[in-house]
Design a protein around this nucleic acid. Structure first.
Lengths: 248, 248
DNA sequence: TATGTTATCCCCAGAACTGGGGAGGGATCG
DNA sequence: CGATCCCTCCCCAGTTCTGGGGATAACATA
C-alpha cells in the first residue's frame, strides 16, 4: 500500500521532470510501488502516425503493444472510449457499466487478457481543445486491484499525465485553436445539432431563414469546416455546446 | 489537515448521494474539514438559464454570487478560463502563470476579493462533449492555502464533481436505449462525423456511393433520426463513435 | 429448409445545404 | 470619427441529403 507522502514525492519529481525519460523512470518506480505491473500514459490518437508528437509512455507487454498498433486499436479500445465518459478513474472491470460493449470490444478485451493484462485502473485526462488522453495502470492476469488505494492511484495518474503534457506541450500541435462563436451562432449550432433545418431554426429564433444560413456560414468559416455536421461536432468538442443542450 | 481516510469516506458518501441536497451537505462538511470557507461546484455555463440541468452547488459569499450572475461573469471568469488549460488542480494565486490576464480579468479578481474571497484552489472537470466544469474551494481573505493537503483537495474536488454529474444526469429523462449499429454503419457514421459526403465515404471504404447512402439510411432509422448531424451526435453520445475517431 | 441479418447496388424527386456575391443598422472601442 | 464586429436580410447556382421504391448474394441460425 502506497502512502500519501510517496504520492506527493512522485508529484514533485514528475513536476520537475523535463524529459520523457526522466518521467518514464519516475512512473515506472511508482507503478511498482503501487503494486501494478504495467502502465500506459497516452494521448488517444493514431500511434502509427509518424508526425505525431503526442504523449506516449507505455510499459505494456510487448505482445499487446504490437497487437494494439497493428490492429489500429487506439481508435476502438473500449477502455479509451469509457475514459471519454468520466472525470475520475475507473477499474477496467467496471467498463461494462459505463458504455455498451460491441462484440468487437469484447474481442479487444480478450486479446488484452491473452497478452497477459489483468484488471487495471484508468484515469482520464481531458483538456478542451486537446486530444484526449489517459493514464492506465494494470495488473498481471489473476492479480486483484487494491481498492483501498485507488484514490491515490488516481492522483498519481493525474500528476503523471499533467507532467507528460507539460513536457510535450511545446511540440503538440493543437487540433485547432478553438475559435469563439458569437451568441447567435452558438444558438444556431445548438439547433443544428438537434437536427433542425435552417428554416426551423429561423422559426425558433424568430428571424429570417437567410439570417440563420448566414450565421451558420460564418460559424463554419470560424471553425474552418465545410459541413454542418462537423460544425456541430467541433462545437461539442470544445464545449461551445453540450449534449445536455441537445438531447432532451 | 485532512486525512486520506476522510477523503475516502467522503468519496463513499458522495457516490451514494442521490439528491443535490445530500451532496451539498457532504461537500459542506468536507470543505470545513479541509479548512476552507467556501466552495463552488459548477458547470461553466449560463447560470441564469432556467432550463439548465447543469451542475451547480455553491456556497460563495452572497455578494459575490450576485455580482457574478448579474455581470454574467461565468463566461469571463479567469479562474474558469485557467481551468480550461489543465487537468489538475491549481491555486488561484498561480493563475497568472497559466493564462494571460486582461485588465478585465484583474477587475473580476478584485471584485471577488472585495466580496471576501481569499486564495482558492480549483479542480477542473472536463468530459468531451459536455460543458466544462470545475470544483473550487476558497479561503477567506488573508488566510493561506495549506499546500501539503492540496493533492487530497484535488481528490475531493474530482469525486464531488463526478457525484454531482451523476446526479444531474439521473434527473434527465434517459435517452432511448442505444440501438446497435452494424460495423459498416459505424464506419460510415464515423466518416459522416468527419464531414465526408456519401461519395467521399464510398471512395474511402471502396464501395459504391449508393451503398453508403443505404447504410446511413439504415443507421438513421435505427436511431429514429432524420438528419445525419443528429445521427453523428447520437452515435457520439452513446459511444458508437468517439471524438478520437473523428478528430485526428 | 426457412428466416433473418448484413452488405452490396440501383432509380428518382423534392428538400436541404453550401459557397459565392451583396447590403444596411447598431454597438463598441480607440 | 473611422474601424470593427455583430445581427439582420437578399439572390443564385450547384451539390448533397433524404425518403420512397426496388434488387441480389452471403451467412448464420433456428
Amino acid at each position: 500500500m502506497i502512502t500519501l507522502a510517496e504520492v506527493q514525492a512522485f508529484c514533485t519529481v514528475a513536476r520537475a521532470a523535463s524529459t520523457p525519460h526522466a518521467l518514464l523512470q519516475a512512473v515506472e518506480e511508482i507503478t511498482a510501488a503501487m503494486g501494478f505491473r504495467y502502465f500506459a500514459l497516452v494521448h488517444h490518437i493514431d500511434l502509427l502516425n509518424p508526425g505525431s508528437t503526442a504523449v506516449r509512455l507505455v510499459s505494456y507487454p510487448r505482445d499487446w503493444v504490437d497487437a494494439f498498433e497493428e490492429g489500429r486499436l487506439y481508435a476502438a479500445d473500449p477502455i479509451h472510449r469509457a475514459s471519454h465518459t468520466t472525470t475520475i478513474g475507473f477499474a477496467w472491470s467496471k467498463v461494462e457499466a459505463m458504455i455498451s460493449l460491441h462484440p468487437r470490444d469484447h474481442a479487444v478485451l480478450a486479446a488484452a487478457r491473452s497478452a497477459g493484462l489483468g484488471d487495471g485502473f484508468t484515469i482520464p485526462a481531458h483538456v478542451p481543445g486537446e486530444v484526449n488522453g489517459s493514464c492506465s495502470f494494470a495488473m498481471r492476469e489473476g492479480e486483484d486491484l487494491n481498492e483501498e488505494q485507488l484514490p491515490l492511484v488516481q492522483l498519481v495518474g493525474s500528476f503523471a499525465f499533467e507532467a507528460a503534457r507539460k513536457i510535450a506541450r511545446a511540440t503538440i500541435a493543437p487540433i485547432a485553436a478553438a475559435p469563439q462563436l458569437t451568441e447567435r451562432q452558438i444558438e444556431c449550432v445548438a439547433l443544428v445539432a438537434r437536427g433542425k433545418t435552417d428554416w426551423e431554426i429561423a422559426k425558433i429564433l424568430g428571424v429570417g431563414a437567410e439570417t440563420v444560413t448566414q450565421h451558420l456560414k460564418d460559424a463554419r468559416d470560424r471553425y474552418g469546416v465545410t459541413k454542418r455536421t462537423m460544425l456541430a461536432i467541433r462545437a461539442l468538442f470544445d464545449g461551445a455546446i453540450s449534449f445536455t443542450d441537445i438531447l432532451r
